[in-house]
């Protein structure tokens, strides 16, 4: 697993109460939206409300509910996706601790307990990127 690369350094952005960061897949192969089962976005210990989270990949934006049935759009290992949510970040000049949690299904590994899922997280410190 390559969990230390989930958050792209220097990609934190915030506008009008919504905050976003670019994320990389911590896995060696592409996965479709249906296998991106959940995420959390936390800045300085405050998590974005779950229902406000959105996932953007291949120039399309999805709620996590919409991803459940999405087997046509794939997250390629070289591409950054964007995770965003309602989260005001106050001081744009300060360093912020950003944490992303991801839950991914591995669709070719079927265990006695169902399709294998992995949970990975990454934390990095960065300033809000200047636009």
């Amino acid at each position: 697993m390559i969990a230390d690369r989930i958050i792209e350094q220097g990609t934190l952005s915030t506008q009008d109460g919504r905050t976003a960061v670019e994320v990389r897949i911590p896995w060696y192969r592409a996965l479709p939206g249906s296998c991106i089962a959940g995420a959390a976005l936390t800045v300085d210990g405050v998590a974005a409300p779950e229902d406000t989270l959105r996932w953007t990949m291949n120039n399309r934006t999805f709620s996590f509910e919409e991803l459940v049935d999405e087997t046509g759009e794939w997250w390629f290992p070289l591409d950054s996706a964007i995770l965003s949510g309602d989260l005001p970040v106050q001081d744009a000049d300060a360093e912020h601790e950003v944490r992303v949690d991801l839950k991914l299904y591995i669709p070719y590994i079927i265990t006695d307990h169902g399709v294998l899922h992995i949970e990975e997280h990454d934390t990095k410190t960065m300033k809000v990127a200047q636009r």
Binding site: R29, P32, S34, V68, P107, Y108, I110
Partner: peptide
């Protein structure tokens, strides 16, 4: 190539 039997969330 991959045998992604578990690609859907509702069933194999």
């Amino acid at each position: 190539v991959n045998v992604d039997t578990g690609i859907r969330r509702d069933r194999l």
